[in-house]
Design a protein around this nucleic acid. Structure first.
Lengths: 118, 118
DNA sequence: CACGTATATGCCTCATAAGGTATATACTCT
DNA sequence: AGAGTATATACCTTATGAGGCATATACGTG
């Protein structure tokens, strides 16, 4: 039995969820967007479904998958006690992501004209 | 290299982090509070430290560990796109739109015309 | 009914990480 | 220096889960 947290430890599953965050998608859509083999997509979706992260509805031969928020809310709730550590200085995340070379997938607010020093 | 998300997939590590959320603790403190073998605690702390979740300072023979917020902020940031699913107001709106079959306000490119079926 | 498409599942292999136990290192005090 | 305390690491075993591939099931269309 996989826990809520270990489910989203899988990068492919996070990618699927992020895709679904934007809009409902069929298995084929996901397969194509993420360029991964269809059995992999189906398996990950099964795990996500059984853990309550997604639900599916039938549309002819396709299954359309969409987000169910509850498990993600659980994670959000777990984070609550830590928020006091960053409610003060919010740009620590940006520095951290810079350091670890993560790609921010919100291209909008890339750089703030805050004049950060190196 | 373990990812930020897989690190907190481990229940013991989440327990350690939750403990540290309240206050700085020594290895012995953690060992005692969580009633787990000391080598386990040290190993988990090592993982957490290398991933930037915690940092330690030396106090005589002890090491006092405390939270570093950055990786947790990263997770918080990853959750952002999903929040609209549980912000009560938007969730209700969404259900309403689904029920009434309104056009999705979700970004772009729903289905690309593969065949001309509906 | 036969066929194409869409998705799910079963089987196998392999890597990784957690737990346990023993031991090493570091620091303190007498 | 020696003993005691606090923490880290090394080694081994084992379980679990992801990926690849083949195949099964479901549905729709001609």
């Amino acid at each position: 039995m996989e826990s809520t947290f270990s489910i989203i430890a899988e990068p492919s599953r996070r990618a699927i969820l992020s895709l679904l965050a934007a809009a409902e998608q069929s298995v084929g859509d996901i397969e194509e967007h993420l360029r991964m083999p269809q059995p992999s997509v189906s398996k990950h979706l099964r795990v996500l479904r059984e853990a309550g992260f997604v639900e599916s509805r039938v549309d002819a031969q396709r299954r359309l998958y969409r987000i169910r928020p509850e498990p993600l809310m659980e994670i959000d709730a777990w984070l609550a006690p830590f928020r006091r550590y960053w409610s003060a200085h919010l740009d620590a995340l940006e520095r951290h992501l810079d350091r670890t070379g993560q790609a921010p997938r919100t291209p909008a607010a890339r750089r703030k004209p805050k004049g950060k020093k190196r």
